[in-house]
Design a protein around this nucleic acid. Sequence first.
RNA 1: GCCGGAGUGGCGGAACGGUAGACGCAGAGGACUUAAAAUCCUCCGCCUUCAUCGGCAUGUGGGUUCGAAUCCCACCUCCGGCACCA
Length: 862
Amino acid sequence: MSSHRYDPAEIEPRWQAAWEERQAFRTPTDPELLRKRPKCYVLDMFPYPSGAGLHIGHPEGYTATDVVARARRMQGFNVLHPIGWDAFGLPAERAAVRENEHPAKITARNVDNFRGQIKRLGFSYDWEREVDTSSADYYRWTQWIFLKLYERGLAYMAEVPVNWCPALGTVLANEEVKEGVYVETGDPVERRSMKQWMLKITEYAERLLDDLEALDWPEHVKEMQRNWIGKSQGAEITFPVVGADGEPLDGEPSFTVFTTRPDTLFGATYCVLAPEHELVAAITSEAQRTAVDEYVTRARAKTELQRTDLAKEKTGVDTGAFAINPANGEKLPIWVADYVLASYGTGAIMAVPGQDQRDWDFAETYELPIVRTVQPPDGFDGKAYLGDGPAINSGFLDGLEVEEAKQKMIDWLVQEEKGTARVEYRLRDWLFSRQRYWGEPFPVVHVLGEDGEPSGEIVPLSEDQLPVELPLIDAYKPTEDGRPPLARASDDWLIVTLPDGRRARRETNTMPQWAGSCWYYLRYIDADNDEQAWDPELEKYWMPVDLYIGGVEHAVLHLLYARFWHKVLFDCGLVSTKEPFQRLFNQGMILAHSYEDAQGRYYHPSDVEFGDDGSLTAKSNGEKLTSRVEKMSKSKLNVVNPDDVIAEYGADSLRLFELFLGPLDQQKPWSTRDVEGVYRFLQRVWRLVVDPETGELSGKLTDEPGESQDELWRLLHKTIQKVGDDIDSLSMNTAISQMMIFTNAATSAEELPRETVRIFLRVLSPFAPHIAEELWHRLGEQELVCNQHWPVFDEGLVVDDLINLVIQVNGKKRDMLEVPQDTPKDELEKLALGSEAAMKFLEGREPKKVIVVPGRLVNIVG
RNA sequence: GCCGGAGUGGCGGAACGGUAGACGCAGAGGACUUAAAAUCCUCCGCCUUCAUCGGCAUGUGGGUUCGAAUCCCACCUCCGGCACCA
């Protein structure tokens, strides 16, 4: 075997060292240079450094951003392309409990591992700007931002119903809970009332919704955020409560409902209060008291899961009290039912079975009256009718269409002072505290009273007291009496004396993991600044982020939280843009084949025998196997480690294959053996320059100008154009395919001008930077290829002189002629009509019509 | 149930309304080699044919158009999100 073949293991570490030594990817800081050139901020969603290390999905997005960053540098931009670590988080804390080691140590170990893996891929990050959300240098500023929120009244403590996860011993945000379980681990969550920190994200609901409009984000992500914010427009209507006798109750109680269909008020036949509604106890009649109490108690005991899952069958109890329908004065029974949520709207509804399927179901079960107030179309055989139509049975609304009727009813309610227009959001305030150790301590203290107990007064620390560092504690778990781990700290840390001499106790909750990632993109701008979180001038220069790539799993959580903080910072005058991330792109998940036998046991791919007939057998025990494409997971034995791929094929091949697999935004199955294809491509590129027998430059290389090989020269210019365009649209798979086409042509050329190769290596270098550097160097260049200018293509060379003219008869291809690209229309028509191969399909008929598309085809209709 | 997205060879996937299947994997045949690896060349949607010619093909059924994978309507399947939000 020749020793001069393409050997990534030898060249890749060498060039990675060279880049580092020459500081090739340092972000420019010279003010003159910043002023002179345009900027491009290319950002990856930074990883949580888990103990498992990088898997094959991580480098997909990282490679795409790296291609963009490298290309933009070559195109004359100042590029900011940083990386860091979302380093606070539960897994490290759990490992700490298990191994009784400080989570900082575990995290540092994991970060080292991640950094090593990432560096082996040759990404052009500016490592001087690495951030770590768990370092005090960083979280000092997270705490500082919290103080800004607090100053503006956007952070408050409240006794609220929270999602408590017993398995984790902490509360969770709404966004972290789905179908009654924690989305990350599947541990069940229950409702509890606890005093917790909340952030008033609801105050920003409207802006978070409106400002989505101008963002260059995938439509479905915007849609998910819109759904999450869940704006509904409607009305608030007040219903007075009366007893069974129709007389007002003591204190003349009333309640308010929220509805999106005020037009259906005449169709309200009963009302429902949520079991938690404060009025329930007060209005329940003596006769119904036992039943109602029992129902309320049972509803409270249900978990969220039970409430949502089991409640498909609607249940409820009559309170014995009545409400007066403000539209027509009718007496409506008031029920308690848990299909009405305390957490949405006012916790009370007017039930309109005629136009709401849930109310219809409930009315059927309990034999409550049903009145239609919108005329369904002829032939409508459903139950509740939700569509448009003229109002009926609705007094002064009769005949109006839904939209008009809504407006007229609202006008009427306002005039009568019985209600008002109202906008409601599904979005709730953000539950911002966790009972964990490994997170940012809150920069606030609770003042202690004479008795040594908290008086309820909260005092924020001043900026010069930051950071509040995490104390060392004896164990990273809650105290015996259920207080958060930080309550284990000694009084040295826990007890503070305020400037006025009063004593206070530190907050022992910590912030959720989302806190650090809410602003890391700002810290990268000025990562070493220990005077301020970032320099305002630099912020003005670099923001907003021009391209942000990450997984779609953050569509709501991280991206909504970060937008919220950014808007607060904007209102504080601390950032210059309304939105942080101008262009967002979600890479699709990379899936992998898993192999399973009839008993459901999984087998490692290396244990699978692939039969020629497509059969799959386990080598170890001969079991017949079936294959499925699934999310990579340890338990399915289908995780692919990038280190293994690099060891076999090199980082350049891994980078290329990550992108060649298919469109960046789609889910794709990984197949390590297919890496072979891009590896062969790189070997061909290698042989364009290096003679594998001797290690000398290839004998085909000439010093003739590129134009001397006309065909290849044109193909090169097309390649420059195509690759450039594809990088802009993130169509990396077709960019690579174009480079393969070029390489195949260059391989079969008799002579290869050096000029042509030099230009091609520049185009290749963002994708496969190591081999590009090596070959560039071997061609005698001293500079780094990654610092070269991106080549400019010649407009005149990307259009062929001769084109294949397709001749169709009745839309079917019948012949093809080679004609000059600029042949005039009437000439093309004449040529087509002269084609015997085509004309015979007319079978003697006269052409009725001839359509000529210059440069493409002629269609003869006959 | 509601809201998105997607259905193209054995596989991953290409295709401004204009030659469907680029590029790659797998497969078949051949060259080089003592042999293998590597490399190079040829073939590779289905049907028909010795071969051409041809016919059929982009989930299904309609429609618009000179021309539809692409646009419109209905349906089927898969994936994702939300889900008693009044």
